Simulated scan of single mutants.
Amino acid sequence: MRTPLRAVLLLTGAALLSAQSPAAVDPLNPSCPKSPDWSANKIMALKVVKKGGAQVLLAEGPIDQTLPDRLKKALADNPDIAEIWLRSPGGNARAGNAAGRLIRSAPGLVTRIPAGWTCFSACNFVFMGGQLRVVEPGGNFMVHMFTMTGDRDAIDQSVALGTETTVELIGDIEQESALLASEDNDFLIRMGVSRKLLTDIMYKQKAVPSGGSGDKSTRRCLSQDEVFQYNVANVRE
């Protein structure tokens, strides 16, 4: 049985991490910290701890394809979990969506990005699975434009094989990217998050830095006003 909502929201004091100096700003992505705190774990670690008298699941590190199954087990083994605290550099996009849907299936479960922590890329979709969502002041909901062209090994191999293979790979990337964009749009609708988050923010971020002396930003951290504007967060503390 999960902790009652009133008790969950009293976690505020416990949720705020020890006072920190303002993080140095990333000169290439000025809305974001220069050194995001998304943990040094190799894959997302799930650990249950007690905070303010409630059970909290700490979810820290990169998202891989095993996350949905591991998360399902953690929630089943610990039915009193009231909140999930997230910090992650992202990872497997479809695993992030699946984990988000799993979280939404647990009524009243709170997701939280604590002050100083960063939730990036696929982690955004895990976070949005919470029925109640908190981005603390100083917490970073960091987005970028989705791209599959980061798979340099596949691209380099196709170039070595010749033009025809490269063209085929680019076609596959475009098709897969379009499919995932459609899935992301559907996910936001189901989670009650404004689709304008995609059109106004995510799709306006560049996949790679521009050349020359122009704007080189590829990442964007939402302000406190923006997380409520787009209904990314729906609980004010």
Score class of each variant (00 low, 15 high):
residue 77 D to W: 03
residue 46 L to G: 05
residue 43 I to Y: 13
residue 115 A to Q: 14
residue 72 K to I: 03
residue 106 A to Y: 14
residue 43 I to G: 04
residue 26 D to V: 02
residue 43 I to A: 12
residue 70 R to L: 08
residue 46 L to W: 12
residue 86 L to K: 01
residue 61 G to K: 01
residue 39 S to V: 05
residue 83 E to V: 10
residue 43 I to T: 15
residue 113 I to T: 05
residue 40 A to Q: 12
residue 119 C to F: 00
residue 31 S to T: 15
residue 84 I to E: 04
residue 99 A to C: 09
residue 77 D to V: 01
residue 95 A to I: 07
residue 41 N to V: 03
residue 42 K to C: 01
residue 81 I to A: 09
residue 80 D to R: 13
residue 103 I to L: 07
residue 35 S to Q: 11
residue 54 A to E: 14
residue 98 A to P: 02
residue 94 R to K: 11
residue 69 D to K: 12
residue 37 D to P: 00
residue 100 G to Y: 01
residue 84 I to W: 01
residue 28 L to V: 03
residue 96 G to R: 09
residue 50 K to W: 03
residue 115 A to M: 10
residue 36 P to S: 10
residue 43 I to L: 08
residue 114 P to N: 14
residue 35 S to G: 04
residue 85 W to E: 15
residue 115 A to V: 04
residue 55 Q to D: 15
residue 103 I to R: 11
residue 35 S to V: 11
residue 110 V to Q: 11
residue 41 N to D: 13
residue 81 I to M: 09
residue 101 R to Q: 13
residue 37 D to Q: 11
residue 101 R to C: 02
residue 117 W to Q: 07
residue 78 N to R: 06
residue 70 R to I: 04
residue 73 K to H: 06
residue 107 P to C: 01
residue 85 W to Y: 10
residue 65 Q to V: 12
residue 117 W to V: 00
residue 86 L to F: 11
residue 67 L to M: 09
residue 102 L to K: 10
residue 100 G to F: 05
residue 50 K to E: 15
residue 27 P to E: 06
residue 72 K to P: 00
residue 93 A to T: 12
residue 115 A to S: 15
residue 71 L to F: 09
residue 77 D to L: 09
residue 82 A to M: 10
residue 53 G to R: 05
residue 40 A to P: 00
residue 35 S to M: 05
residue 79 P to L: 12
residue 92 N to A: 12
residue 61 G to V: 03
residue 58 L to K: 13
residue 34 K to P: 00
residue 29 N to V: 02
residue 86 L to G: 05
residue 28 L to Q: 13
residue 87 R to T: 05
residue 57 L to P: 01
residue 54 A to Q: 11
residue 43 I to M: 05
residue 98 A to V: 03
residue 117 W to P: 00
residue 108 G to L: 09
residue 67 L to A: 01
residue 109 L to P: 00
residue 42 K to H: 07
residue 76 A to K: 14
residue 112 R to G: 04
residue 80 D to S: 13
residue 112 R to V: 10
residue 56 V to W: 04
residue 102 L to P: 00
residue 112 R to K: 06
residue 95 A to F: 07
residue 116 G to I: 05
residue 87 R to Q: 06
residue 92 N to T: 06
residue 109 L to Q: 09
residue 105 S to M: 05
residue 32 C to R: 00
residue 91 G to L: 02
residue 69 D to S: 13
residue 35 S to T: 13
residue 116 G to W: 10
residue 103 I to N: 08
residue 74 A to M: 15
residue 28 L to D: 14
residue 48 V to D: 06
residue 29 N to D: 14
residue 64 D to S: 08
residue 90 G to A: 04
residue 67 L to S: 03
residue 56 V to Y: 11
residue 51 K to E: 15
residue 40 A to S: 15
residue 102 L to H: 03
residue 43 I to K: 12
residue 90 G to H: 08
residue 49 V to K: 13
residue 51 K to H: 06
residue 65 Q to H: 08
residue 37 D to A: 09
residue 117 W to F: 14
residue 69 D to H: 10
residue 90 G to Y: 01
residue 33 P to D: 12
residue 76 A to H: 09
residue 27 P to T: 08
residue 112 R to C: 04
residue 38 W to A: 03
residue 46 L to P: 04
residue 26 D to P: 02
residue 84 I to D: 02
residue 91 G to E: 12
residue 65 Q to N: 12
residue 71 L to T: 00
residue 78 N to H: 14
residue 77 D to I: 02
residue 34 K to D: 13
residue 107 P to W: 07
residue 46 L to Q: 10
residue 55 Q to V: 01
residue 55 Q to K: 15
residue 108 G to R: 09
residue 77 D to P: 02
residue 32 C to N: 08
residue 103 I to Q: 06
